[in-house]
């Protein structure tokens, strides 16, 4: 069992096999192997406080269904079920997705990282730059000239619908 400590000092006890899904944690555990028990405590302070819980939920679901099985011999029904579960898991607000991406990046959890990025790109699809800016709370910081000249003329067709 290893212990993760979040930025707000909460402790999460996780089975090593489960936490191993984070390549970063796996490496840390590997480095400290054979040492005292106190070294099995890992600080994950660079992660927003709500996120470890979510990450652990994700780990547990995936731990029950390791990646290798997922690809090779998982039955169609099970794969479908996991897909549904993931869709629900990622169906969250954009801020949480941002945090999940950053957590997955720093903890090196490829499948979580990919899944979250995929979801973000789904949210961005079919939306204008203004809408995307609003959703992601990015302020439009292009200069007036860029806005007026370069960007639209580069690909004017993107912004228009020629139907009368």
């Amino acid at each position: 069992m290893i212990t993760l400590i979040s930025s707000d000092k909460r402790k999460f006890h996780v089975l090593e096999e489960v936490a191993n899904q984070s390549l970063t944690i796996r490496d840390v555990i590997e480095d400290r192997r054979g040492r005292r028990r106190a070294d099995r405590i890992i600080l994950v302070t660079n992660i927003n406080s709500k996120i470890p819980e979510k990450v652990i939920v994700y780990w547990l679901r995936h731990f029950l269904m390791p990646e290798e099985i997922a690809h090779a011999s998982m039955s169609h029904k099970k794969a479908e079920k996991l897909k549904k579960w993931e869709a629900k898991f990622f169906d969250t607000d954009i801020d949480t997705l941002n945090d999940l991406i950053l957590a997955a990046d720093s903890l090196d959890i490829p499948s979580l990282f990919d899944g979250a990025c995929e979801k973000v790109s789904d949210i961005l699809k079919n939306r204008s730059a203004e809408e995307v800016g609003e959703i992601s709370k990015i302020e439009n910081e292009f200069t007036h000239e860029e806005e007026e000249e370069e960007i639209p003329s580069e690909n004017a067709w993107v912004w228009r619908n020629e139907f009368a």
Partner: peptide, 17 residues
């Protein structure tokens, strides 16, 4: 990269610098 449609890609690049 997860944005697949060319039109989405161009819009993506127009959000901010």
């Amino acid at each position: 990269k997860k944005v697949k449609y060319i039109v989405d890609y161009i819009r993506f690049r127009a959000v901010c610098s």
